[in-house]
Write a protein that binds this DNA or RNA. Sequence first.
DNA 1: AAATTCGCTTGCAATTTGCAAGTGCAAATA
DNA 2: TATTTGCACTTGCAAATTGCAAGCGAATTT
Lengths: 136, 136
Amino acid sequence: METDKTRSDCPVSRTLDVFGDKWSLLIIRDLMFGNKCTYNDFLKSDEGIATNILASRLKGLEENGIIEKSPHPDSKAKIMYKLTTKGIDLLPIIMEIYIWSEKYFPMSAELKAIIKEAKKDKEKFAKQIAKGLKKA
Amino acid sequence: METDKTRSDCPVSRTLDVFGDKWSLLIIRDLMFGNKCTYNDFLKSDEGIATNILASRLKGLEENGIIEKSPHPDSKAKIMYKLTTKGIDLLPIIMEIYIWSEKYFPMSAELKAIIKEAKKDKEKFAKQIAKGLKKA
DNA sequence: AAATTCGCTTGCAATTTGCAAGTGCAAATA
DNA sequence: TATTTGCACTTGCAAATTGCAAGCGAATTT
């Protein structure tokens, strides 16, 4: 998952080099829907990512312009990671993963309800979430 | 990318264990849009997947019910891999990857045109492709 | 002043990858 | 009929990546 592994010029292959990896996708998901934004947030999150892997994925995502660092409002010791526009544009992909996920795995009624809502008008839902992510 | 790495019961995490990996996604993509269906098709395709990795990914995808083997009409020596319904349901995800890809990577005018068409009515496009995949 | 929190880095064993070569069966060719 | 080719893998091995625990410097809290 480091940069520039493919010599393939296939755009999809290049795209998957950027974020087509479980941990990268989970980080992106956490940023979009998990209310998580610091290194420790990601580290402590359910999935159990190892600290060095987290660091390497954050680096990769930043190098590829998907996320960026910014000062955390609470403290100078903290760093806030946030999605760039390029990263926010991944929303529809993550949404479709959730939709597939709901069809094939058990899920809380709460989450099911949100997904049901999202499916009703995907674009509207995406825009709403994107707005929230941009203003932050 | 073998089965059951996560003890996490997060459905998205479990989903990404099934196909959240560059090679798995490229195989799925090849099955959907690449007109590829045999081991050698995948092996010779642009991305340059190693033969052992290909075997392991095919195994994983089969175990997870995304693809299945079937006899090849041309020859008894050949095996035809095809997407199950569960696999075909991944179409919207792959489509969104293409759409993102088109926004951030150079791409042939031909492919751009197809994506433009797909964006006009995603559901219709998906249904069309799904129909083609099911009948085969 | 001391302890804790934060965002990492480092070391190391274990797993996974990538590459090349090989295997066993089916089918086409000589 | 004998032989070569094509197909779907498997195997061996070096190199890279992972997962885990421990450590580290700067900022913050006590």
